[in-house]
Write a protein that binds this DNA or RNA. Sequence first.
DNA 1: CGCCGGCGATGCCGAAATGGCAGCGTGCCG
DNA 2: CGGCACGCTGCCATTTCGGCATCGCCGGCG
Lengths: 326, 326
Amino acid sequence: MHAAVLRYFDHVARHGSIRKAADALSVASSAVNRQILRLEDELGVTLFERGRQGVRPTAAGELLLRHVRETQNEYQRMRAEIASLGGTVSGDVRIISLESLLVRFLPLVVQEMSVKHPQVTFTVLAVHPSEISEALRSGDNDFGVLFVDNRHRGIDVVAEFPTAVGALMRPDHPLAGRKSLTLTECVGHPVVMLQDRWLLDAIMATEFADSGARLSPRIVSNSIEFMRQVIKSGLGIGFFTPVGFLEEVRRGELVHVPLAEPGLAQSRIGILVPRYRRLSPPARLMIDHISERLRSFDDFLAAPVRPALRSTSRPAQRRAKSRSKA
Amino acid sequence: MHAAVLRYFDHVARHGSIRKAADALSVASSAVNRQILRLEDELGVTLFERGRQGVRPTAAGELLLRHVRETQNEYQRMRAEIASLGGTVSGDVRIISLESLLVRFLPLVVQEMSVKHPQVTFTVLAVHPSEISEALRSGDNDFGVLFVDNRHRGIDVVAEFPTAVGALMRPDHPLAGRKSLTLTECVGHPVVMLQDRWLLDAIMATEFADSGARLSPRIVSNSIEFMRQVIKSGLGIGFFTPVGFLEEVRRGELVHVPLAEPGLAQSRIGILVPRYRRLSPPARLMIDHISERLRSFDDFLAAPVRPALRSTSRPAQRRAKSRSKA
DNA sequence: CGCCGGCGATGCCGAAATGGCAGCGTGCCG
DNA sequence: CGGCACGCTGCCATTTCGGCATCGCCGGCG
């Protein structure tokens, strides 16, 4: 429906080069070039600065770019809305997430969703913590499943759930019997750590730093899967939320001991949505489904800690504080 | 830039007929028709119900319509934004207003604005009170200059100014010497009234009813200009905000005596903007300008009442409570 | 009852827009 | 200096779009 020039312009901006964009679009570069020139003529401004190394949007180009992307996003959302009028939900749901949730949790909910709504497609991306704000604000993604971080402006938390960041280890580890741990208590034990603060968002990073704990990493990696295997083989302790390791903990292959540091024990996973974003029907359904799933895991996630401290009363208190709307 | 089919679709929906739309667009009806058919084929849904008397959007058509209009509005706003990058402000500012402001006040500010920014065009419409909400929400208009009515949902008041609704009469009228009046005090005097609640919004209507005052209208009309002349010729009292009659009051041709009823004395004129609407640069400038103008009238508008009641202290207190942003 | 007028849909044709191909000029880099 | 990637342009084929005439349909009116 929309003019091809919208897609062309978007691609040129993304690739920073007319030829690259034309290549990605599978059209001749001349065609793309002429559309851009025609557009500049129509608006009476130059939209790209032509450098020796490609093109870069001018201020006017940036404004147009925002309009174009917004239009395309809204178009997709509207198509999904129309499709859902006929009863069958369809469209693409774009999610950004913590990598630890990408490994187990999100595949599960995506699969469950796919069974219920076969027409829905999914784009699930792990993002570097420094790019979360941009990824949510750009309008390219519907929502994020991330650690709640109230430093983000213009982003709403539509549902959040407590999760206890803790130490993951084999059942035969010396610390495996503990009900909770401080980071300082882990000093001396071999630790496997994530490289480059991946997964550990800023909250945790400062907490780890503030504790003064000089943890000695025996193994450093940026692969969750690698760390999973390393921990399973008893090479050290890892620090994670348990959501990505539910199966291992259930089967007794690993033990998750929550950390006592307040900033970590009270950390929360939330569904983060750019404020004012209109969600497509499948995105709304997906948010509801994830909320439900997280809530159903909640007892399991939180139970190992709190009931042990609060003796008898309220033995399995529901602690999810969903603010999801109907 | 945008595909012609957007404009076609919009026009067809507005006119409720393909041929009418084609006529308004100055293209052949077949061209319009085929574009609509192609669009329906592309989306896989029928967008219009073909009746004997033209076409009417289906549910899917309504969704698409919203997207199309939003896209067009945003495009216009973006063009204005780009144009203002070059220093010269341009674009169209769409305002809805009370009819009483249309007669004197808005022509003044529009003229002042036109001098400063010749490239800016204006669309100023009087709307029936029952259509205010729809007119603001539709996205067709930038803002309204109206009586503040907090029953509107999703509409923000970016600036508001007290205005004293009062009785307008000739200086030789028996009540002309009064500092303030109640409606019951007006009983017995001939009154000129607006037909069909035009201008008087619901607040005033109820106030007039609640007061129990049985005012005897000698003349009823729906034309402000007609009533102005009638009042000037001494045929009766009219009830208005003074903004539309500033010149006459200044020249001493008419006297404006504020009404004592709290709901009327404390009525406010405000600039009402649809929440979440992004304003074009000229619209922002126009809002600022109107705010300033209203504020500069404020002393004049409010002074006749309050200083007289509060004797010495705070003789000419500024009472504008602008919440306009820079 | 039949005619007329308005409606949307369609076939046909010329005009305009779009895209593909080849080639130009230019600046960067080894 | 020669390759290389860049944006740009002339030429031609293809696709799309719009105008015109026409069809089928239906309601209103004489």
